[in-house]
Amino acid sequence: MSSFKEFKIKWGMAIDLDKCTGCGACMVACQAENNIAPQPDASNKLKSLNWLVVYELTNGKSFPEHEVAYLPRPCMQCGKPSCVSVCPVIATDKNEEGGIVSQVYPRCIGCRYCMASCPYHARYFNWFDPTWPEGMDKTLTPDVSVRPRGVVEKCSFCHHRFMQAKDKARVEGRDPNALNDGDYITSCTEACPNGAIVFGDVNNPAHKVHELVKSKYAFRLLERLGTDPQVYYLSRREWVRRLGDNYLENEKVKG
């Protein structure tokens, strides 16, 4: 297995699950921002392409003890991604400052090995060519290329916004590698009216997310598998934190 790089900047999210109502605005904002094609019938969730998916969590108890929570799942941008080393053609890599796992569509041959490796189901395949209702393709943003059929894609943390923020900093004479908190946020972060998502540089004490990930309520999905995700979740509810990883019956959840 290859070794993984450490980066000075580490873009990360802290998603407060106690603040997510599951409204789906983030999913829509993501599709519009990243030129993901709409699907007339998206009821087969195993074949509907959306980089960000909101899962429904339940505490498993019967009425009236039942509780529900919603968990938005972008790409975890793992520190030790299981998908990167398996790609036979280096179409995906984690080699840029910030630690975002890249996916280069013109390089991808569509073998789907990375999808098999990802336990978060964060990777999606273009089963067909993307199509938009007539004229709707005019609303595509110029920021993200449209993917043809046969390639794998995934959440990029709206990487183009990172590039735009750096360019803006350059033009304004600021250091592109020292962005302020909020200079670069993802489309879902921006769209969420509840502010459930906080985005920033986990390594930078000036960024809010830096403190948030240290909260005793913070956890990551499937931490023990060693993927080292850059997406953190927070919940004051123990049962929610317990759903973040597989626990044997006698094991205690942290926090």
Partner: peptide
Amino acid sequence: PPFNTKTVRRWEI
């Protein structure tokens, strides 16, 4: 809206 079919929960439709 076209994009929103994906936000409809699995056991809704």
